[in-house]
Design a protein around this nucleic acid. Structure first.
Lengths: 155, 155
DNA sequence: AGATCACTGGACAACCTGTGCAGTCCCTCT
DNA sequence: AGAGGGACTGCACAGGTTGTCCAGTGATCT
């Protein structure tokens, strides 16, 4: 899948995104073409999904994160609900989960009071029966993939 | 917080990360220095957390995602547990949540069978009493912040 | 009014990227 | 053994980009 050099390339770019391909090749002790080829291959294979800027909702005033479990009306399925949810910008992520007729989504809000507004929006979505939310008090481990990459590339 | 131009800058770089500052300034119809200054400011304010490559665990063979709710032994607190969890690469994210003594984490695994192994690792972590997991069947909305950025910057 | 701030437009040197190519090494299949 | 394919190296070139600085302008704040 990915070998050790791939892992080191990912790691380097994750830690210092501003280094260019040339500088990376120097640091890793390989030819520039190699780094370039590896990056191209990983992008092609979907391992590297992109390089978009990571936005922190908290810095934008959306400091409250919550996980909302949705119970759906059985008829209609998940997709229409997902479509409805995607119209709510505060819904950052949504998954269909194992409990039949359920979804789990991650939402952000400006405050606990604002969270109420967001949840109301969610509950008002067609197909949503009930919503149970859990507020995140602290983000102990923030979305990370580096350890996994390391584990995979250096067995 | 951020204005419309900031929003359009973020949007442009999110959709086409490879465009440089110069090209971006051309597309947005502003001076290069302006784009550069905005990016610098947003990076300084923490709005843009970084530009690291986004890794897709699924493309790495970790196609199963699950959300695991942990019940902790009350004594000891969350931090030691978080430290223990961070040693498990498959734990992508972890939050302290509202139910006292609970944590919620997002984990990935190679298969359902492999998920069992990961959960066993989690349960074996010091301070963890019980774990209840929910498997993600489909990722209806994948981590997105663009709609939020748009909503904030264009009220 | 005066000061401050953000933006523009331009300029410069240094550097990086995209690309192509020849040569080497190594593994695999015949 | 020998051929073929794949990956890597080292190098070269043109063109574009970055980092940086500066003067000028308009709008806003004091």
């Amino acid at each position: 899948m990915i070998d050790e050099l791939d892992g080191r390339i990912i790691e380097l770019f994750a830690l210092e995104p501003r280094v260019g391909v040339l500088e990376a090749s120097r640091r890793l002790g390989v030819a520039r073409g190699t780094v370039q080829a590896r990056l191209d291959r990983m992008a092609r294979d979907g391992v590297i999904r992109g390089y978009g800027p990571e936005i922190d909702p908290a810095a934008l005033g959306y400091g409250v994160t919550a996980f909302v479990t949705l119970q759906l009306r059985q008829a209609g399925g998940h997709d229409p609900v997902a479509r409805g949810l995607s119209a709510i910008p505060e819904v950052i992520e949504a998954h269909t989960i194992t409990s039949p007729g359920d979804m789990l989504c991650r939402v952000v809000a400006r405050s606990n009071a604002d969270l109420q507004r967001v949840i109301d929006l969610i509950v008002a979505t067609d197909g949503v029966e009930r919503a149970a939310s859990v507020i995140s008090l602290a983000n102990q481990i923030t979305a990370r993939t580096l350890p996994l990459v390391r584990a995979i590339s250096r067995p």
